[in-house]
Design a protein around this nucleic acid. Structure first.
Length: 503
RNA sequence: GCGCCUGUAGCUCAGAGGAAGAGCGGCGGCCUUCUAAGCCGUUGGUCGGGGGUUCGAAUCCCUCCAGGCGCACCA
């Protein structure tokens, strides 16, 4: 892949560029003079004058001027814009991607909700976030596998089974048992309710455009516990088996197997160890956990397990997102899966659509808690910016449908001058690789929706001001429109939202 | 008590040292043109408070205030 248009220019200039907030400050600007001033012990504006002079000497630079305390603002020639545009067209769907180095085998474990009820909006954030991170890693070139951990053997699952059984006998559920309508539904059929529940969960997630490559069951892992325990540094105390996790920086040792009085069953910590051992044995270079902030207390635990097992803790990555709360009538609503007092993802999708739901859940940063107003959700998503972005894509598809020829991938005669809206749009498109790179690095897919709105913004303005078909600049504008389509489609796809041909 | 997250326009939120932003809402305009789910104008700010570092801080450090979530032989 050729160096990016901006990077090439930076290399020629010898200093880094940024995009100024205001168009009055040029197409690009640099603060290099301000950075250099202290070490050169010279006034920044003096250095800026020199940089501006050097820049003006380049063919791609139309004009350069010094501003403020020592910024250099640059205006670029049409040739640079054409160059940037053709780069996007050549890269196509791979634009901004394939830069992973080294390429890793990555496992993303996400959702992993207990199979004791349908997927809720709380898990939906996990799903949307985890899947988008996975998509980003894939686009960067990594080999990614999505896994769902099925807790089919824990106390909650047993309680769930007992609740269904009680229902079948026409009795009240056990203390603290499950009450939702779906329990009654499952009670209508024979056998273990967990498999049909899992089928329903999988169907919901597929509908949400998330495909799991692998479903790992706790019941399959537990048998390996004795074997794993043997290799660990454990001791017995108060009738329980403990691991010396303090040796690895934990504040307290942890119990792995409960004392007989407390049931003698292995704890979650024990299963965590067996499960991570299982993951690492499968040869992943990187293992990612996606957890809600209600689990952030164990964030440090997983890397420590890796150490305990003799692996590099840096192979383990724990991503935390803040929780989704339900708000009703301006007040926080207490949710409980057991009582069935939740918003199920299927219902949420029925209300706002997959695109609306995914966009809504992903466009806020993972550190930001989300309140979903149950009553206003549908209303809000009517105004959801996702339609604004999709509409831009559909408009482009319309133009390309009506175009006499497909946009050419190799440019192109240079228009004498580019209109402002054209320049703004190209500069926006050129930002994409950097946006993407940062989103990957920071595991922050929310940058993409926010960026896509900017692209749609610039496109709608361009569309309003300039005709594409049967204009003098038709060839150039078809190419520009096609490049815009590539970037919008990619931005949407990376967060799991569709790019419609018509609306 | 300790830890993590949050506090930016009326509301929902972007902004990871460089020149304060968007969407929604409010007000006023624009369809004989490739899609008006669009465009243009306007309204809007002690970036929670206070200190510090820096030529420069919403951004980094300290501190205080407010809210959310955690700190189990719970799952």
């Amino acid at each position: 892949m050729p160096a990016r248009a901006v990077e090439r220019l930076e290399a020629e200039l010898g200093f880094p560029l940024e995009r100024p907030a205001s168009a009055d400050h040029g197409d690009f600007a640099t603060n290099a003079a301000l950075q250099l001033a202290p070490q050169r012990k010279r006034p920044p504006r003096e250095i800026a004058e020199e940089l501006a002079e050097q820049a003006t000497a380049l063919e791609l630079v139309e004009r350069a001027e010094v501003a403020g305390p020592g910024f250099v603002n640059l205006w670029l020639a049409p040739a640079w814009y054409l160059d940037a545009l053709s780069e996007i067209l050549e890269a196509g769907e791979g634009y901004g991607g394939g830069l992973a180095d080294p390429v890793e085998r990555v496992q993303v474990e996400m959702v992993s909700a207990n199979p004791t009820g349908p997927i809720t909006v709380a898990s939906a954030r996990n799903a949307a976030y985890g899947d988008s991170v996975a998509r980003l890693l894939e686009h960067a070139g990594h080999d990614v596998e999505r896994e769902y951990y099925v807790n089919d053997a824990g106390a909650q699952t047993e309680l769930f089974r007992a609740s269904v059984e009680a229902r079948r006998r026409g009795e009240e559920p056990p203390e603290g048992g499950y009450l939702g309508d779906y329990v009654a539904e499952l009670a209508g059929a024979e056998g273990d309710p967990v498999p049909p529940m899992l089928e329903r969960i999988e169907a919901t997630l597929e509908r949400f455009r998330i495909h799991f490559d692998s479903w790992r069951r706790q019941s399959q892992l537990e048998g390996r516990l004795p074997q794993v325990l043997e290799c660990l540094d454990t001791y017995e105390s108060d009738g329980a088996i403990w691991i010396r996790s303090t040796k690895f920086g934990e504040e307290k040792d942890r119990v792995l197997v409960r004392s007989a009085e407390r049931g003698g069953l292995p704890t979650y910590a024990a299963v965590d160890i067996v499960y991570l051992a299982d993951k690492l044995e499968r040869g992943f270079d990187r293992v990612i956990y996606v957890l809600g902030s209600d689990h952030h207390g164990v964030r440090g635990w997983y890397p420590i397990i890796a150490q305990i097992l003799g692996h590099d803790p840096a192979q383990v990555e724990v991503l935390i997102y803040q929780l989704v709360h339900l708000v009703e009538g301006g007040k926080l609503r207490k949710v409980s899966k057991r009582r069935g007092d939740v918003v199920f993802l299927d219902d949420f999708i029925d209300q706002v659509g997959v695109d609306g739901a995914r966009w809504y859940l992903i466009s806020r940063g993972p550190d930001q808690a989300i309140d979903i107003d149950v009553d206003l959700a549908a209303d809000k998503t009517q105004k959801n910016p996702v339609y604004y972005v999709q509409y831009a894509h559909a408009r482009i598809a319309g133009i390309l449908r009506n175009a006499p020829t497909a946009p050419s991938n190799s440019l192109l005669q240079s228009p004498k001058a580019l209109a402002r809206a054209e320049k703004e749009l190209i500069k926006r498109l050129v930002e994409f690789p950097a946006i993407l790179e940062e989103a990957v690095e920071r595991r922050g897919p929310h940058a993409l929706p926010n960026y896509a709105i900017r692209v749609a913004d610039d496109f709608h303005r361009f569309y309003h001001e300039h005709r594409v078909l049967e204009s003098e600049a038709q060839e150039f504008r078809l190419a520009l429109v096609r490049a815009t389509q590539i970037v919008i489609a990619l931005s949407l796809d990376l967060v799991g939202v569709e790019a419609p041909e018509r609306m």
